[in-house]
């Protein structure tokens, strides 16, 4: 069992290295430069992929939260926690790349564009979720409480998106589209390919980080257990 999971990790690692370089090549050299926005548009590939993973990670948290509530199991609890930690990372990258892109194309660091604003709220929910996990107490109790919060958070995300979009359209009728690249009319096939390739690579990266994170967390638990045992033995 141990050997097998080690093999999967190694395989993923060696698959990821060429893929990341290939993605970089596709983004910066192979794909054409966008006519209106120029070279800064390249950040869009990473922006969209990271945003996708950020939301994916959050729904993973929701999924494992539901499973934790149905049957408390430390495995699900760990999965949800690691996914949230990685999610914070990708949400932060999404926000940063979004801001850089915003600066270059609309000359402003921040717009209340619904997707970007939802990402910001998502970031806060993630952080709140991690705070819940930092509570003191047995893991069963924390697992239950954090799972409950995770579920409520996941329910909230679509509503946030909807509310911000309505709010936005009421304020400024035309919103400069982002994300799916609706602004350019059609998307050129090489661009679409590059985008899909990027999304795939970053999703794979997420999966790899997830596996590694879970492994580390499990080790941490094993060490803690051993420590407790040793202390108990010393205490008599």
């Amino acid at each position: 069992m141990k050997q097998k999971s080690g093999f999967i990790d190694t395989a993923m690692f060696y698959l990821l290295i060429p893929m990341v370089f290939a993605a970089l090549y596709f983004v910066f050299i192979w794909s054409p430069v966008e006519k209106f926005m120029g070279a800064p548009q390249k950040i869009f590939y990473f922006h969209v992929s990271c945003a996708w993973v950020a939301f994916l990670a959050f729904f993973t948290v929701g999924y494992y939260s539901v499973r934790t509530l149905i049957k408390p199991n430390i495995k699900f609890h760990i999965h949800a926690g690691i996914s949230a930690e990685i999610g914070v990372l990708f949400t932060t990258i999404t926000l940063l790349t979004g801001m850089i892109w915003g600066k270059s194309s609309w000359n402003t660091w921040w717009t209340w564009e619904p997707r970007l604003a939802t990402t910001l709220i998502l970031w806060f929910i993630y952080v709140a979720y991690l705070f819940v996990r930092r509570m003191e107490g047995s893991w069963e109790k924390i697992a239950k409480l954090s799972a409950v919060f995770g579920i409520i958070g996941v329910i909230n995300v679509p509503i946030v998106f909807m509310a911000i979009r309505w709010w936005n359209t009421k304020l400024h009728p035309v919103v400069f589209g982002d994300g799916k690249n609706q602004d350019g009319g059609g998307i050129e096939p090489p661009m679409l390919f590059t985008l899909l390739f990027c999304i795939f690579t970053i999703t794979l990266l997420y999966a790899y980080l997830m596996r590694k994170g879970i492994e580390i967390e499990k080790m941490r638990h094993a060490v803690k257990k051993a420590k407790n045992k040793a202390i108990n033995r010393l205490a008599g």
Partner: peptide, 8 residues
């Protein structure tokens, strides 16, 4: 009746 709390 068995109860396990945490690792204990």
């Amino acid at each position: 009746l068995t109860k396990i709390l945490g690792d204990k």
